[in-house]
Design a protein around this nucleic acid. Structure first.
Lengths: 217, 217
DNA sequence: CTTAAATCGATAAAAAAATATCGATAATAA
DNA sequence: TTATTATCGATATTTTTTTATCGATTTAAG
């Protein structure tokens, strides 16, 4: 199968932020929202906002704006966040625990139902309400539970091995927080989260600003 | 001051991954690396690799490859990761603790020296070796410690307030893990990390694949 | 009813990023 | 030495993303 191409990547990344804002508005009883307000909130241009919202398929009303409720539904539908996806998480360390502790995921259609770790001190314990199983049972349990999504929170040098086991257990989508690019069969999707990448961008912005300031004097 | 523009954003985001691989190679005693090997490791095309490395200013030798050590130095220099930046972190919850527990940051020139929180249960305790101070002391301590970088790990609805206090305390660079776009003066840089954004991309890839599979039958 | 202000969305232009082409350089083997 | 293979990096092309322009629709005020 061909690689899965997602067009409008930046837009998709922004959708959760719209969703948060729109949910807050709905809670506050607001029914209509116009582009300029969202643009101010997002610190983006109005055109960007309209393009982003257009991707989800909603139409606004000229001179008026968009219906908040309609937007929320459209975004959730586009992301398929109406249906809950169950996932297993491997690596119950600091980051893994943090992800399990994040309640917002339920809102995003993600439910982490079990964790795995190699550390005997962790196996058998509970982290944020989920049991931590022996990593050696990953394949077996994943298959039995029919889970199709896996989250990798182990150090980089162990990530490929975990990915292989996940694939063996029938996992079709991997959310990878390790600092490596994983090799998986064509029918498995990987989304990588490179936290250090954000720090790299920040670092470059900082040094850029320094030289710009120098240049201005 | 004008907004800081960083060209080649995708390249910068990839640099930490090169850095990890190259460091491993150096540890293993490897002195020379050629594009094809890195391309396999990164799951990218060879041209991408050469463009990425060119950004840091290094020159490879045709027919041979690049010097591992030279590449490491060049990447670190480009990211300014040779010099340590001290940072304060606000929000000693699950994610905040995870970031403080990540030892790799030292390698990236980042040292988190103190944490802040509003929870009386946390104030006065230590998390991963750093004291947790009362959030009300953020401005004072930041100023006294001369810290220029702040990391925000609080819920979205509190993030702007924290950012304002950071700016008041003299912070010039903010790494923001909250799901909001912050408003700050022009001389302050913000880098936002939207974890949910990655999940959104993964979700779209998954539903895309489903429809593609449907179409193939 | 007419006019003005606000807003959407289609189309077009500009900028950035990904991808391809190809000549030049260096190591290795004949 | 010469031919072959491996590799780099400059240039060009294509694709994607961002930004701009402008007509059409709606509300509200005169």
């Amino acid at each position: 199968m061909a690689k899965v191409k997602v067009p409008k990547l930046p837009t998709v990344r922004r959708l959760p932020t719209y969703l948060y804002k729109l949910s807050e508005m709905r809670k506050a009883g607001v029914e209509i929202v116009a582009t300029p307000e969202l643009a101010r909130y997002m610190n983006l241009g109005e055109i960007v906002i309209r393009k982003d919202l257009a991707l989800t398929g909603v139409s606004g009303q000229p001179g008026v704006g968009y219906k908040v409720r309609e937007l929320i539904d459209a975004i959730k539908r586009y992301l398929n966040w109406n249906n809950v996806s169950e996932a297993v998480l491997v690596g119950a360390g600091a980051l893994g625990s943090a992800l399990m502790g994040y309640e917002g995921f339920e809102e995003y259609g993600l439910r982490i139902i079990a964790a795995f770790d190699a550390d005997p001190m962790k196996i058998g314990t509970e982290v944020r309400g989920r049991s931590v199983f022996d990593i050696d049972r990953l394949e077996e349990l994943t298959r039995r539970l029919q889970v199709r999504m896996g989250i990798i929170c182990v150090p980089a040098d162990q990530a490929q091995d975990i990915a292989d086991r996940m694939v063996a257990g029938g996992i079709k989508a991997i959310w990878n927080f390790a600092n490596v690019s994983l090799k998986v069969p064509d029918d498995v999707i990987v989304q990588r989260e490179v936290i250090a990448g954000g720090l790299a961008v920040l670092s470059v912005k900082m040094s850029r600003k320094l030289v710009e300031e120098d240049a201005q004097d």
